[in-house]
Design a binder for these strands. Structure first.
Length: 804
DNA sequence: AGCACGCCGACT
DNA sequence: GTCGGCGTGCTC
């Protein structure tokens, strides 16, 4: 028998290796690398991925594979080796890497259950179990636990009257619909018609239908067309006149939507210059990384579309990554409009089943283009011709759980393998990327002008401290208020942007300054108005909103921070005639709400669109002529070396929403720190100067792109334990690195406690440290072993985005 | 991650 | 004497 090497579905240090299994002869040719299989593992049955099929194993007593879970490998050879690459570069378990590359629907579910053993009868069991097994032949373990039957069951299991079994279940199956078709020919059916009893008019109707339409038809449709019920059809099937078959169908999230076909647009000179190197890279099958650096509205999307056209023309495939938040219908429409049914869309708004179906359309080569968020970078294409990453600077391309990968790195790795170009597009590239483009590692392509030659909007920066000095205590500056009024009169639209991150509405006592904190995490609770509660965003702890301060009993306890609801209320007071659409987590949580609100706005059912981050991108409506940023600097004060970069990007992004078409746009940015370069330069939309300034800061503080970072975070319930372990780790890492490397720590994390666990970290800054990866691996080996036993958790993030 | 095995204290 | 607590080590 042949042998398969299998990575089992147990994410732990000790099982992070292949296990060998015999391939039963009946599956000798049916089990291939990349397939999921069910294997026995100790007393259990679990899922695993076959990584290799070989002639023999060095392991003496092998068990057999129980069964394959796929007909076709779910991981191509390329993805298998990409998984290994991911494992090495993010220091995760191989199983985690494989699972990250597949839709969640393919992750196995496990069930433990108990059944009567052999020929034992329920009567042999004690009374409490008898009743259970008389009703059902089996009981699910969890149910047994709930009903307190575990001890009794264990006793019986020891006697051998019942046995414990395990099941591996697929999360879901392909959707099937019942189809009906005629078995006989037209003439034969016509003959049969005569033998149908006179009273069975409906049966005759159905046969007549098939005489005219001999193809198979979905049963539901047939019933509607012939006005019958399934009973009639069933009789005809039993008589052997009709056949039935289940046909697999895709859940189409875009069913009932028609996409207007679009044709390639004529390119401007700038666009033509920019696309040229991309096209030749495609033609010559050459791997190149391009940074397509173009201001908002400069026509990057058309370059994407025409590059893909070239790729598809060559019979190859394309992946387009967009940030989740801008995976809007507008964006999807543009791709569907150009490539029609050749496009698969993968985003979080789809149900698990829909996502799985879209993924399968890629797997079966039914589409040429995949567009989606971060994980779409793993789309199982085998002839990749290009990967495009739009809004390259977006932090959502970095996954914040294992495997902690960055989609950009994965894309480049795949590009190397497929000899195809990678295009990174942005109006405000990340410093890392721009620096690489400057050094010539990436090839820089520039789109300096907006397509319509429309000037970038005029930006006013308002110092809110001055407003306060002048006695304006509202959240709208005088200028913004005036401009708002002006738009209302001219019937033009406004977007109001509230930068909320890092500024959640916490509750503070105005008398003693007491802030309501989570009892399990060292972080303030966030006020939720809909149920008057205080919630912790890290552990989910919930408290009632207090009416008096728990500290000093003052009733001057209020929530701070300007939520969108509060802004909406104030708008209602100062501009009661304005129609406002509010977009935030509360108003967009329901499926399709996001799209509906945007539709309403585009149909001019509202004058003002008020929202958070989620409206910063992709909005492209001709009638928007004013953008207001209510508080530009709320994220500037976060303890994050990228805060300036993020502020600049966000403000630039938001400003770009105004005046994209014929009407001229204006932007008002309100801030308490107008002198900060990221605010000031975003007003001038001057990325180049921002880049120069920020690079100086990064160089001075030894941050990326001058240094690489790696972050080790240790957590445990006991403070002393955390500190001592982090200390040991820090010393060990320091001992293995060169003088040049900077090893900081142990320091308390920015959030020193989450869920009653203390968190300490060690931050490593380095340029070239070949010994770092092995050192980190050793740390993980050493402490992940210990983790299960002592409750110690340790995580390593290579190139972290969040230092918390 | 489960799960079995095994070694110690506190009960019918 | 047995039940059950959780430390230790294995899973092809």
């Amino acid at each position: 028998m042949k042998v398969a090497s299998v990575i089992v579905d147990v994410p732990a240090k000790q099982t992070d290796k292949t296990f060998d299994y015999l391939i039963p002869n009946r599956w000798e040719n049916a089990i291939l690398p990349g397939m999921r299989v069910v294997v026995p593992f100790g007393p259990r049955k679990i899922q695993g991925f076959v990584t290799e099929v070989k002639a023999e194993s060095s392991f003496a007593k092998l068990k057999e594979i129980i069964e394959p879970m796929d007909l076709v490998p779910v991981l191509t050879n390329e993805l298998l080796s990409l998984g290994n690459w991911l494992t090495e570069h993010t220091l995760c378990f191989r199983i985690s890497a494989f699972q990250a590359m597949l839709p969640a629907a393919l992750k196995a579910k496990y069930e433990k259950w108990v059944k009567l053993a052999g020929n034992h009868r329920p009567e042999e069991l004690p009374a409490e179990l008898q009743s259970v097994f008389q009703k059902n032949p089996e009981i699910v373990w969890n149910e047994a636990v709930e009903r307190g039957l575990v001890t009794a069951l264990q006793r019986e299991a020891a006697k051998g009257t019942v046995e414990v079994a395990y099941r591996v279940k697929d999360r879901l199956n392909a959707k099937r619909l019942k189809h009906v078709y005629p078995i006989l020919s037209k003439e034969q059916l016509a003959n049969e018609l005569e033998s149908i009893p006179a009273r069975a008019a409906k049966q005759r109707d159905v046969l007549n239908y098939f005489i005219e339409n001999p193809e198979s038809i979905e049963q539901r449709e047939l019933l509607a067309k012939t006005a019958t019920t399934s009973g009639t059809v069933k009789v005809l099937i039993e008589k052997g006149l009709l056949g039935e078959i289940d046909k697999e169908v895709y859940r189409d999230p875009f069913e009932e939507r028609v996409f207007a076909q679009t044709r390639p647009l004529a390119l401007t000179d700038d666009q033509a210059n920019a696309i040229d190197p991309i096209l030749s890279s495609i033609k010559e099958d050459k791997h190149n990384v391009f940074l397509l650096y173009g201001v908002t509205g400069s026509g990057k999307t058309e370059i994407y579309l025409q590059s893909i056209q070239e790729v598809v023309g060559k019979g190859k495939e394309a992946i387009v990554l967009v940030p989740e938040i801008s995976l809007t219908p507008q964006m999807v429409n543009r791709f569907k409009g150009r490539f029609g049914n050749e496009v698969a869309v993968l985003h979080s708004g789809l149900s698990a089943g829909e996502k799985y179906d879209e993924w399968r359309r890629i797997q079966r080569k039914e589409v040429k283009v995949a567009i989606g968020a971060r994980s779409a970078v793993f789309a199982p294409f085998e002839n990749l011709g290009i990967i495009i990453i739009d809004e390259e600077h977006e932090t959502s391309y970095k996954q914040e759980e294992n495997p902690r990968y960055h989609a950009r790195d994965v894309a480049i790795q795949r590009g190397l393998l497929h000899n195809c170009p990678i295009v990174l597009g942005s109006a405000t590239p990340s410093l890392e990327t721009f620096a690489r483009a400057q050094k010539g590692v990436y090839q820089l392509l520039t789109l300096p002008k907006r397509m319509n030659n429309q000037d970038l909007p005029k930006v006013d920066i308002i110092d809110m401290r001055e407003e306060l000095r002048d006695g304006n205590r509202s959240m709208f500056s005088k200028l913004l208020f005036e401009k708002l009024q002006e738009r209302l009169e001219k019937k033009e639209q406004t977007v109001l942007f509230l930068n909320k991150r890092g500024h959640s509405s916490f509750v503070m006592c105005r008398d003693c300054g007491y802030v309501l904190n989570c009892p399990h995490c060292d972080i303030s609770l966030t006020y939720h108005r809909y149920n008057q509660s205080m919630k912790c965003h890290y552990c989910g702890h919930e408290d009632r909103m207090p009416s008096i301060c728990p500290e000093c009993s003052s009733d001057h306890i209020r929530f701070f921070g300007t939520g969108t609801q509060k802004v909406e209320d104030e708008l209602g007071k100062i501009l009661p005639e304005a129609r406002v659409i509010r977009m935030d987590v509360d108003t967009t949580s329901r499926k399709g709400a996001h799209e509906r609100l945007l539709n309403d706005f585009s149909e001019r059912k509202a004058d003002i669109l008020l929202g958070t981050q989620m409206i910063a991108k992709g909005l492209d409506f001709p009638n928007i002529t004013l953008v207001g940023v209510l508080s530009a600097d709320t994220m500037l004060h976060l303890p994050d070396f990228r805060s300036s970069e993020k502020t600049f990007q966000l403000l630039t992004q938001v400003s770009g929403r105004a005046g994209r078409h014929k009407l001229k746009g204006e932007v008002v940015i309100q801030t308490y720190t107008p002198e900060h370069y990221s605010v000031e330069l975003s007003g001038e939309q001057d990325f180049d100067q921002f880049y120069q300034r920020e690079m100086l800061v990064r160089k001075m503080h030894k941050y990326p792109p001058f240094y690489f970072l790696s972050l080790i975070t240790v957590s445990h319930e006991e403070l002393m334990k955390v500190i001592s372990v982090t200390e040991k780790i820090t010393n060990y890492v320091r001992s293995r690195l060169s003088e040049e490397a900077i090893v900081l720590g142990p320091v308390a994390s920015t959030i020193p406690r989450i869920n009653d666990r203390y968190r300490y970290q060690c931050l490593i800054k380095y340029k070239r440290e070949p010994d770092l990866a092995p050192a980190l691996k050793t740390v993980l080996d050493r402490y992940q072993q210990e983790s299960a036993a002592s409750g110690l958790q340790i995580s390593v993030d290579v190139n972290p985005y969040i230092l918390m």
